[in-house]
């Protein structure tokens, strides 16, 4: 147990120590000593600052992400169950997915201005494609024997959706949601860099423009921590929701 803990923390600790030691006497304007950055971190990200800049960012992120998840799964199931709809929609969806999401920012700014709704729409619009396409794929690939079983036992309509299609597609849906999460963070930052008066992306760019280098580094650190925290949360939620899937996979591997 101690050995494992040591394994987990030793490399990050070593890297951190190297960074700290190597930068201690740094004269480089762009790479200030880590100690300076950490002091700046403490001074910059006060509770007030977190409330004013980080909370709005997170709120937009969650709103856009939730919108994308609901829309992606709903439309994905609809397309996934119909062969003809799927054939017609797939090229269009592939095209939309291939568009780099950040270029949507200027387009959506035309329609929705530069307010909060613009950012939410940008995040939703960028995140929806991986969720949608993965849902389509997951619903399409529902096991034929399982589907026959459901039909023989009279499981149809809403019960089919709830007990067969959604759970069967859930591993794929989660894959899509994971891809969407990293897109959501990117779009949150980008949309704030473009036009905003608060938010994490806005603040970090302000620091960079005013050459407040240690503060800028502290912002980068905070963004990194945020990305890490969100992905850990996602992993925990996934463990809980897809416990059966991981068990099934390891059972199959052993078998």
């Amino acid at each position: 147990m101690i050995r494992r803990l040591l394994m987990v923390v030793s490399l990050p600790a070593v890297l951190f120590a190297i960074w700290f030691a190597a930068s201690l006497s740094s004269e480089n304007f762009y790479a200030p000593p880590l100690r300076t950055i950490l002091v700046a971190f403490k001074d910059t990200w006060t509770p007030d600052r977190l409330r004013a800049d980080v909370l709005p960012s997170l709120g937009r992120l969650l709103a856009g992400y939730a919108l994308a998840a609901v829309a992606g799964v709903t439309i994905g199931v609809a397309i996934g169950v119909s062969k003809r709809l799927r054939a017609a929609a797939e090229p269009v969806l592939e095209f939309f997915r291939a568009i780099p999401p950040p270029v949507l920012v200027p387009v959506i700014m035309l329609f929705a201005g530069i307010g909060t709704s613009m950012k939410v729409i940008v995040i939703a619009f960028g995140c929806v494609w991986p969720v949608l396409l993965n849902t389509v794929e997951g619903v399409r690939a529902v096991d034929s024997v399982l589907s026959d079983t459901s039909r023989s036992y009279g499981i149809s309509g809403a019960a089919r959706l709830r007990h067969l299609l959604l759970p069967a597609a859930s591993p794929q849906i989660v894959t899509g949601l994971r891809q969407a999460l990293s897109i959501a963070i990117i779009l949150m930052v980008i949309s704030e860099m473009f036009a905003a008066s608060n938010g994490l992306g806005f603040t970090v760019v302000q620091f960079q423009r005013s050459f407040a280098i240690p503060e800028m580094w502290s912002g980068i650190l905070l963004l990194g921590l945020l990305g890490f925290a969100l992905s850990e949360l996602f992993r925990l939620a996934e463990r809980a929701a897809l416990g059966w899937y991981h068990g099934l996979r390891s059972a199959q591997r052993k078998g």
Partner: peptide, 26 residues
């Protein structure tokens, strides 16, 4: 692999756009 796992898990989700200000400066 065991030694680097936690570091990889930490660095991977850091959004690359966080590096934009740094890239501009450099």
């Amino acid at each position: 692999r065991a030694w680097t796992a936690s570091t990889i898990e930490f660095l991977r989700p850091i959004p690359s756009v966080a590096l934009i200000p740094l890239a501009v400066l450099l």
